[in-house]
Design a protein around this nucleic acid. Structure first.
Length: 312
DNA sequence: AATAAGGTCAACCGCGTTTCT
DNA sequence: CAGAAACGCGGTTGACCTTAT
């Protein structure tokens, strides 16, 4: 048996709100607030609407200080960075953009921003958003700025991808990864000895593309400590710089930009979209720094729990 | 000018989580 | 502590608008 409906569907109005309904809801909210109960509100406010509908209308449209219209470049960048970090958790993303609603951001992402990025990053559609953090990280989170690193603990039965490498690693092989990097670097990671960090995430994204040695947005992300892995223009150096400043950049998007920038320099050769607008990428990803000094704050202004970065 | 196709966005739906009793 | 009620969220839908043919 399914859940009981939240209201009598037959006796509630649906569809677009009229100005009269908006006025009723606005008046009621300004005088009384929700009273802690959205379900009971329509009756009190003399609205033939479902409580959930009232809540949505208020939060997304009527509530004071709602911002509509064009998103700024800065807002674009925040959305991209956060999406890359936490996925489609729109309410959290909205909490970082005053006046914007989760619905607004979701629509904007789905209809415009995603396409904009896809047009400049052809491989974008190969990846999925990250899932919620595993339970095992919930109790011992690291903040972005933390310098403490937990012991490397991986599921021995799982396969993990190493950054930029067309090879899977079982967990027991991780110890040999730096050596592998130094002897099998045929995909232009630059000096593999400089590839110092590896972010282990299990099974989050789509499989490697066979046609492309370099993994876009894959299960691991890699940064080179001195920028020598093709860090020829600003974007790459910016990411490196932020790491040096003490907070690592976890953004998968940043990796996209990072790798993409290298490709645009011809570092990886072919397979570049002809129609990209590098300025767009620069604008969007020109700074990967997040708000609040590199931390991501949730609605309660508490630091989110983030996957740790492992170092060899 | 008419129609089709594509884009946008407000609103709905269903489900997981939280709060209440 | 368990079950019910309410909340909040993300995915999806569909009406309306714009652009292309």
């Amino acid at each position: 048996m399914g859940r009981a409906p939240c209201c009598d569907k037959a006796n509630v109005k649906r569809g677009p709100w009229s100005p009269e309904e908006d006025a009723k809801l606005r008046d009621y909210m300004e005088k009384n607030g929700t009273g802690g109960n959205w379900i009971a509100l329509p009756q009190k406010a003399d609205l033939k609407r479902c409580g959930k509908s009232c809540r949505l209308r208020w939060l997304n449209y009527l509530r004071p200080n709602i911002k509509h219209g064009e998103f700024s470049i800065e807002e674009d960048r925040v959305i991209c960075t956060l999406y890359a970090t936490i996925g489609s958790r729109w309410s959290i993303i909205a909490a970082q953009l005053p006046g914007r609603t989760d619905n607004d951001i979701k629509n904007y992402w789905n209809t415009k921003l995603k396409k904009k990025l896809m047009s400049v990053i052809p491989q974008f559609n190969q990846r999925k958003a990250p899932p919620p953090f595993p339970d095992s990280y919930q109790n011992s989170p690291l903040s972005l700025s933390s310098q403490m690193l937990p012991p490397l603990s991986l599921d021995s039965s799982s396969q993990y991808y190493a950054c930029g490498l067309n090879k899977q690693f079982a967990s027991h092989e991780f110890a040999s990864l730096p050596q592998y990097l130094s002897t099998n670097d045929n995909n232009s990671l630059g000096n593999p000895n400089n590839c110092s960090s590896f972010q282990a995430q299990e099974g989050y994204y789509s499989p490697l593309k066979e046609s492309n040695n370099f993994m876009f947005g894959g299960e691991g992300s890699c940064s080179c400590s001195d920028g020598s892995s093709g860090g020829q223009i600003g974007q790459t150096r910016e990411i490196i710089k932020q790491e040096e400043m003490g907070f690592q950049d976890y953004s998968i998007y940043s990796d996209y930009a990072y790798q993409y920038v290298e490709k645009t320099n011809g570092y990886f050769g072919e397979n570049i979209a002809e129609s990209y607008d590098l300025e767009d990428v620069k604008k969007l990803m020109g700074s990967t720094s997040l708000s609040c000094n590199g931390s991501i704050l949730d609605e309660n202004k508490e630091e989110l729990k983030l996957m740790p970065m492992y170092y060899f």
